Amino acid sequence: LSIEDFTQAFGMTPAAFSALPRWKQQNLKKEKGLF
């Protein structure tokens, strides 16, 4: 994903996403259907 696509999909920047705990990242991916 481009940074723009990522931000649009997750509502945050890739840097903010990577700062989240691993379990939170997994849950967000599942919610968006990317996992």
Rank of each mutant, 00 (worst) to 15 (best):
A15W: 03
Q25C: 01
F6Y: 15
M12D: 05
L28T: 02
K24T: 09
T13K: 00
K30M: 11
P21N: 01
E4G: 03
L28M: 05
K32E: 13
F6G: 00
K32T: 03
Q25S: 01
Q25D: 03
G11F: 01
K29H: 05
S2A: 05
L28S: 00
S18Y: 08
M12I: 04
D5I: 04
A19E: 15
L20N: 13
A19T: 11
W23N: 07
T7A: 09
I3F: 14
F35S: 07
F35G: 15
P21V: 02
N27I: 12
E31M: 06
R22E: 15
E4C: 05
K29Q: 12
L34N: 14
A16M: 11
F6P: 10
F6C: 14
F35N: 14
K29I: 12
F6K: 00
L28E: 06
G33C: 07
F6H: 01
A15S: 12
K29C: 05
Q26I: 14
L20E: 13
F6W: 03
P14Y: 03
I3Q: 12
A16R: 10
W23L: 06
G33L: 05
Q8E: 12
F10E: 08
F17P: 09
A15R: 08
K24D: 11
A15C: 06
A16N: 13
G11C: 02
K24N: 08
K29T: 07
T13R: 00
S2T: 12
I3R: 09
G33R: 06
M12H: 01
N27T: 12
R22N: 14
P14F: 05
A19M: 13
T7I: 12
A9H: 12
A15E: 14
P14V: 09
S2I: 01
K32R: 11
E31C: 07
F6I: 09
Q8M: 09
G33M: 06
L20C: 01
A15Q: 13
A19F: 03
T13S: 10
P14L: 07
L34A: 13
D5P: 00
A9Q: 15
D5A: 04
A16Q: 14
E4P: 08
F35V: 15
N27A: 14
Q26S: 05
F35M: 13
M12V: 04
S18P: 02
T13W: 00
T7K: 11
L20V: 01
K24P: 02
K30A: 11
A9F: 03
S18K: 10
S18C: 09
K30S: 08
P21E: 04
A19R: 11
K30Q: 12
Q26T: 10
E31T: 05
L34C: 04
F17L: 04
F35W: 09
A9G: 05
F10W: 05
E4S: 08
I3M: 13
N27C: 09
A15M: 08
S2N: 15
A19N: 13
K29M: 14
T7D: 06
W23D: 15
L20Y: 01
P21M: 01
A9L: 15
K32N: 10
G11V: 01
F35K: 00
K29Y: 10
F6M: 03
A9W: 07
L20P: 13
K30H: 04
Q8S: 07
A15G: 09
S2G: 08
M12R: 02
N27E: 15
Q26M: 08
W23E: 15
F10L: 08
K32A: 12
Q8T: 13
Q8I: 09
N27H: 13
K29E: 12
Q8W: 02
A15F: 01
E31V: 06
Q8H: 04
K32L: 10
L1S: 13
F6V: 00
W23S: 13
S18A: 14
A9S: 05
W23P: 07
I3L: 09
N27L: 14
L34T: 08
Q26A: 12
K29A: 07
F35C: 10
A19H: 08
K24E: 15
S18G: 10
I3T: 09
G11I: 00
R22T: 15
Q25K: 01
N27Y: 12
F6R: 02
L34W: 13
A9R: 14
P14A: 10
K24G: 03
E4M: 01
L28W: 04
F17G: 07
P21S: 03
I3G: 06
F10H: 09
W23A: 12
L1I: 15
F10P: 07
G11H: 00
F35T: 13
S2W: 04
L34I: 15
A16S: 09
L1K: 03
T7C: 08
F6A: 04
A16C: 05
R22F: 14
F17D: 15
E4Q: 05
M12L: 04
E4L: 02
E31S: 09
F17Q: 10
P21K: 00
L20F: 01
Q26D: 15
A16P: 01
D5V: 01
L20D: 10
S2H: 03
Q8R: 13
D5Q: 10
T7N: 11
L28Q: 05
L1Y: 11
L20G: 05
I3P: 11
E31R: 05
S18T: 06
W23V: 10
I3K: 13
E4A: 03
G33V: 06
S18W: 10
G33T: 05
F17H: 08
F17N: 11
K32P: 09
F10A: 07
W23I: 08
M12K: 01
P21D: 05
I3A: 05
T7G: 04
F10V: 09
T13Y: 00
E4N: 06
K29R: 10
G11M: 00
G11L: 00
F6L: 06
E4K: 12
T7F: 11
P14G: 03
S2D: 13
L28D: 07
N27S: 14
Q25N: 02
A19G: 11
R22H: 14
K24L: 09
L28V: 06
F17M: 03
P21G: 03
T7W: 04
F10Q: 04
L28G: 03
K24V: 08
M12P: 03
F17K: 11
E31L: 02
I3N: 07
S2C: 05
F6E: 01
S18E: 15
M12S: 03
R22V: 15
S2Y: 01
G33A: 10
D5H: 06
S18H: 12
G11K: 02
A15D: 13
G11T: 02
G11S: 02
A15L: 09
G33F: 02
R22G: 14
L34K: 08
L20H: 04
M12E: 05
G33Q: 12
Q25T: 00
K29G: 05
P14R: 08
F35H: 12
L28R: 03
A19Q: 14
S18V: 04
K30F: 08
K32S: 11
P14M: 06
M12A: 03
K24F: 01
M12Q: 00
T13L: 03
F17A: 07
D5W: 00
Q26W: 07
I3S: 10
W23H: 15
W23T: 10
L20A: 02
P21T: 02
K32V: 12
F17R: 06
L1A: 06
L1G: 11
I3C: 11
